[in-house]
Design a protein around this nucleic acid. Structure first.
Lengths: 65, 65
DNA sequence: CCAGAAAGTAAAGTAAACTTAACTTTACGT
DNA sequence: ACGTAAAGTTAAGTTTACTTTACTTTCTGG
């Protein structure tokens, strides 16, 4: 699962810290998501879509393996 | 998080067992999702959208609390 | 160059998603 | 009424998302 959180975050002029705060998650979570160390829960995905004002599919690129 | 997996599954004429098989998850997972006992991973959400041939937002209704 | 902010790493712990298994209940055709 | 398929329950175990803390590295402005 690829994502472009880092780009979107930059576009919205947010630090990892600020984004974490908006999402009510830890900064660690943002770092790990950006580094694609794990996949978000669907709730986090929805929240990200809300904050970035776009669709989940625009943030996360699902490639079936 | 609400979802209409049960309806969509019926529409596609699938048993819980068959859907579980298509998704490579256990039947328990389908039951629990339909009963909204927990939320799916984003991967499962994508897979469901693929199988039901619709958008994630058409399956899962996110209500921020 | 250096201070501070932002980004990253590592590790140990908690919470929630998902599995496995064994059993019960409901719906439905014969 | 009975058999069987589908749906549901419970519980214990594994995996993975997410937290917390403490520390290091990179980036940027003065």
């Amino acid at each position: 699962m690829k994502n472009n959180i880092k780009n979107l975050r930059a576009k919205h002029d947010l630090t990892q810290d600020k984004l974490a705060e908006l999402l009510n998650v830890s900064r660690q979570t943002i770092i790990s998501l950006e580094k694609e160390r794990y996949n978000p829960s669907i709730i986090l995905a929805f929240e990200l879509a809300r904050i970035f004002n776009c669709r989940i599919e625009e943030i996360f690129i699902y490639q079936e393996e």
